[in-house]
Design a protein around this nucleic acid. Structure first.
Lengths: 182, 182
DNA sequence: AACTTTGTAACTATAATGGTTACAAAACGG
DNA sequence: CCGTTTTGTAACCATTATAGTTACAAAGTT
């Protein structure tokens, strides 16, 4: 019951990148597709980068793209990247220690919540970004070749951007999961 | 990710009632065990009553107790009584209709979220309040007989309350699920 | 009639999410 | 080396959900 859409946005972002292939996407382009603000996208992108799911780069030819093949990233990876604290929470303030129920309820509930979380993770682990993209296609199949020409890829001036260098391919942050310069 | 403890509190409340048997508990007693305010308890109790899980009564001998045997109420019943909207949410604002990914992502994500919710529900359906209470006991086993004498059951004046009439047993709201007078 | 407890409204505090603006730092092109 | 582009990030605001609190009417008991 989360009232937040971060997981949905994250999956959307990654699917978009899988769809557009090697080419880095700018946060502005992504924001347009998601229908939100670029900073919101960058915030989520940051978490995904820290988890090693995407790689980003500043500069005029910059942007973000997937760090791995979309068939290698599962929704569980996404879920964990966002550091959700589990489906449910325990008591805000610890229950009474003077009540036989209060003393142990947290332990018992903890076991239950663990069972629930495990079930969720089992489901998410079996769905990859590639699966999501594949499920996406039947709907807009005909656009498959046009791909992202809708979005701002040809700038307002028509100066088309060329396929980019594989984003410092093989460079530094491979496997450590962070593309950050700090 | 749910930053709320309503599910935990609800399970706590029901376990407490299961523990104390037929005897109605006052929201103040429950609040003491949960370590919160009686009104918070009454708010949750209201939702549980609407779902037919508890029965309440005003007046000096009033309070709330389980509507059914604790082995008949599952954690799924509790979950549904609280009307959680599912584990994850979709986009806050609808994604771009001009993007092949944006158009269909909500549909695909909806399927995924359904799978997740179903998995959660399957787990919750297999755990009853009675199970929780049973798991509770090994820890504070020795208190089993003292039960709730800790809590405010003997008033400050020592005037002990006697076992109550089975709360208008067999009366009105049986099965409709609501004990409310409106 | 007096007392007790629930039901409920109203108000406040807190925290998470998300939207927005602003700007420094990094990367690139000329 | 300079200007441009884009990310990274801080700062601020609006909205919403939860929960804590006070207060009181209505229902039930003695």
């Amino acid at each position: 019951m989360s009232t937040n859409s971060r997981f949905a946005v994250a999956v959307h972002v990654l699917s978009l990148m899988a769809w557009s292939g090697e080419e880095p996407l700018k946060s502005e382009q992504v924001a347009e597709s998601v229908n939100t603000n670029p900073v919101v996208i960058r915030r989520i992108l940051k978490e995904l980068a820290e988890a090693g799911l995407v790689v980003s780069q500043t500069g005029s030819l910059g942007g973000s793209r997937l760090a791995h093949d979309p068939s290698e990233t599962t929704l569980l990876d996404v879920y964990q990247a966002l550091e959700y604290g589990g489906v449910f929470s325990l008591h805000r303030a610890p229950p009474s220690r003077d009540c036989p129920v209060g003393v142990n309820i947290e332990t018992v509930l903890g076991d239950v919540l663990l069972e629930v979380d495990t079930a969720v993770e089992r489901v998410l682990q079996n769905i990859t970004i590639n699966d999501v993209v594949r499920r996406l296609k039947p709907c807009g199949a005909s656009v498959a070749s046009k791909t992202l020409e809708h979005m701002g890829k040809n700038g307002k001036n028509g100066k088309r951007q060329i396929a980019l260098p594989p984003l410092r391919a093989g460079a530094k942050s491979r496997g450590n999961g962070s593309s950050r310069t700090a």
